[in-house]
């Protein structure tokens, strides 16, 4: 599968990544205009970049870029977890629906929506509780339950964890362009859960159970790296309008941040989100690892559009175990 053959490139050989921060104060607004315009802007930058000569020795990427989206199959991978009356746990369906419309308008041949909730095997109940059907129509036509999708054996590209292979959904492997669409949340075991951690949701419960406990025993941080190194999400859109701090991803406290963060490099998007949350991305174990082969962690290598990080920075509370990842603590120590 082409998706799993994209070369791993160290940061010094990578072109800069593009990340856009948009300020949004409510789920009531017109997301289509916001998302479509942002994607267009990022697309223009990518197109301009592709006309530049490639640096010598950099292996050619096999992945689809935003600039090449026309005629392609896009998979949106939101983070749907459980019943969420305060809209702090799950990616909001308004954003998912607007992303679908935007990619279609950009020329994508089809835009699929798929997730594999980790804790509740009644995916229909989870997705109904999120109200996705109200935004995208009957679920049997618009949504793929990745937990019970057809699977293929995939050797993992890296050996960060002791997992050597995983059975992964064919819908994910066949997609030309995978968009990770997480929520902005802290995580009680991984520090934060953003676009890279969101990819846990592609691992099928139908092979590994609910929860996908084999990933926990393999080491959460390392499993996140192996999954992302193998599947390589192409883009990220983070719903940070209402996020979660403290004992996330389910039992924390809702936190309003009023941003949507976009980017063509999920590592750079997650690093930017951490900075918005007042956290140090290089102190988050799996992000530090991802910064070596999967994308840019370094702020100097991220071309920022839209709002500045400083203007939207909203420090998040973390569990005591993760005090060391807070920016403020580091500044005090220094």
């Amino acid at each position: 599968m082409q998706r799993t053959e994209n070369p791993l490139v160290p940061p010094f050989r990578r072109p800069p990544s593009h990340v856009a921060i948009r300020r949004v104060d409510s789920y009531e607004r017109d997301f289509f205009a916001l998302i479509y315009e942002t994607l267009r802007e990022l697309q223009k930058r990518e197109t301009a970049e592709q006309t530049r000569p490639q640096a010598p020795g950099v292996p050619a990427s096999t992945s689809t870029t935003l600039a090449q989206i026309r005629g392609k199959t896009v998979l949106l991978k939101p983070n749907f977890v459980t019943l969420d009356p305060l809209s702090a746990i799950n990616t909001h369906p308004a954003i998912v629906a607007a992303a679908r419309e935007s990619f279609l308008k950009l020329g994508a041949a089809q835009v699929l929506i798929g997730d594999g909730p980790a804790l509740d095997r009644d995916t229909e109940a989870v997705v109904e509780s999120v109200r996705l059907r109200e935004y995208v129509g009957p679920l049997q036509r618009s949504f793929t339950d990745l937990n019970v999708d057809d699977v293929a054996r995939v050797p993992l590209r890296t050996r960060a964890s002791r997992l050597k292979e995983l059975y992964l959904p064919k819908t994910v492997l066949a997609a030309d362009f995978v968009v990770s669409m997480p929520k902005l949340k802290t995580h009680h075991w991984a520090g934060v859960t953003l676009s890279l951690k969101n990819m846990f949701g592609i691992v099928p419960g139908g092979c590994y159970g609910w929860p996908k406990n084999v990933l926990h025993w393999a080491g959460i941080d390392n499993a996140i790296l192996d999954i992302n190194a193998t599947v390589r999400p192409d883009f990220a859109i983070v719903d940070g309008i209402n996020g979660m701090e403290g004992n996330g991803p389910i039992q924390g406290v809702p936190k309003k941040t009023n941003v949507v963060v976009f980017g063509n490099d999920p590592v750079a998007v997650d690093a930017t989100c951490c900075r918005i949350m007042g956290l140090l991305p290089e102190k988050i174990k799996y992000l530090a690892g991802a910064g070596t082969l999967l994308g840019h962690l370094n702020h100097d290598k991220i071309e920022q559009l839209g709002e500045s990080i400083a203007s939207v920075r909203t420090p998040f509370a973390v569990l005591k175990e993760f005090e060391g990842i807070k920016e403020v603590d580091r500044q005090k120590r220094n």
């Binding site: 590994y208 159970g209 609910w210 929860p211 406990n213 084999v214 926990h216 025993w217």
Partner: peptide, 22 residues
């Protein structure tokens, strides 16, 4: 992290993982 009796054994979803309810 979790308040439960870890000495009790049920079954995991897959071998070499923890006990879960289903």
């Amino acid at each position: 992290v979790v308040a439960q009796d870890e000495s009790l054994q049920g079954w995991g979803w897959t071998p070499d993982t923890a006990s879960w309810v289903e």
